[in-house]
Design a protein around this nucleic acid. Sequence first.
DNA 1: ACAAAAGTGTTGCATATACACCCATGG
DNA 2: CCATGGGTGTATATGCAACACTTTTGT
Lengths: 220, 220
Amino acid sequence: MDKNNPLYKNQGIHVLTALFTVENGKFKVLLIKRKNQPYKNKWILVGGACYNNEDVDQAMQREMLEKTGLKNINYEFFKVFSKPDRSPIMRMIAIAYVGVIDCNKVKVLKETTKTNDADWFQIDRVPELGYDHTEILEEAIEYLKKRIFNSHILKNLFPKYFTLPEVYNAYVSILDKKIDRRNFRKKLLADGIIIDTGKLLSQNGKKSAKLYSFADDKLI
Amino acid sequence: MDKNNPLYKNQGIHVLTALFTVENGKFKVLLIKRKNQPYKNKWILVGGACYNNEDVDQAMQREMLEKTGLKNINYEFFKVFSKPDRSPIMRMIAIAYVGVIDCNKVKVLKETTKTNDADWFQIDRVPELGYDHTEILEEAIEYLKKRIFNSHILKNLFPKYFTLPEVYNAYVSILDKKIDRRNFRKKLLADGIIIDTGKLLSQNGKKSAKLYSFADDKLI
DNA sequence: ACAAAAGTGTTGCATATACACCCATGG
DNA sequence: CCATGGGTGTATATGCAACACTTTTGT
């Protein structure tokens, strides 16, 4: 392995996350705006370099903490993006993740050394993104839709206790289609994804809703 | 992105494949023996650098061609390995694939500039490998077992036409457990993985066996 | 009383599993 | 005629999808 062989010198490892939330029934993704070239003033997904003293999962946890202030977030690797020319500066491979959090728990930094804006965008109102991030975002959405019933990826979207209608509405927003409420409840309970806590939440003008929590153990 | 920042300079992208075969009912993996330090004379999985003018899939196809002389092989990415110290020479990330071929179609090079031996090893007789390849091989086997019924990954293990007992025995060898022959046939036909060609193969001392072929279209 | 939201069970269909006997051939 | 190996169907269980009415509460 010759570090100076032009065939494979100056390669870089990047990690990035399509970080989603659901707010008021709207499915949204966190984007940041680049301050400098290349893609100056373009919106992109959050991410950064993988440092030499950490593996890619650790790098993503660090980036997540730096970008959102949150620790121990559930997120999942979904694909490697490696087109040779995906970055105009140098050969850069992207290890891409999907995560879902409660945007109200987060204070996103509007300005950093590299960005001059940050915001949650409704999925159907995302502008053209820098780099190959438009493609990455599309694949991230597809991945999330596939995994939503077989993982705890939504665990950080809700507080410890939540009602069934809340989680139901999140699924509908993300999948962008109707789901049968009875089958939905049956499936999440049968698969042990959520647990009936026995508690009730009284709400004005409505029948009280049961409170559930996510199961602790990991799925597939 | 500063190429000289010591936090993330001198990173390298490697691709490697756990290349499997089944020969005489034995599940085997292709290993090569390193000629030089580090891990001199240790056996490792086949792989190499991803060049700057190709994406990781192209790099793997090129490596596969160089290592086995075969083109257009079905193989599947399964995991990124990125522990900081997995290579003692430099920071090296491994994009890992699984592939399955017919070892009799291949003339593996016994000696190259970097290797002084190459051979197919029965899975239960694999020696301790260099780098983190023992761990990668274990995960590759698990991945293959999971994917074997939902992909065409075995397509290159057989000639164009094959009999049901042949493919059945390969599945049994790889999964290392008994499978019901009737359900096996039903499943592969129902899922459209294999197609009955209507041809028959006469064999000595046995009832003639039907000839099947893999379906062309891609699965999941 | 009624509107709005939350609660809940049953049936049919499809998929997966378990299981055993007959047929062709060569020695 | 028997040993070997290849062929095949049925019955049960499980998982998934379709489907509507009742309860609570505030106005």
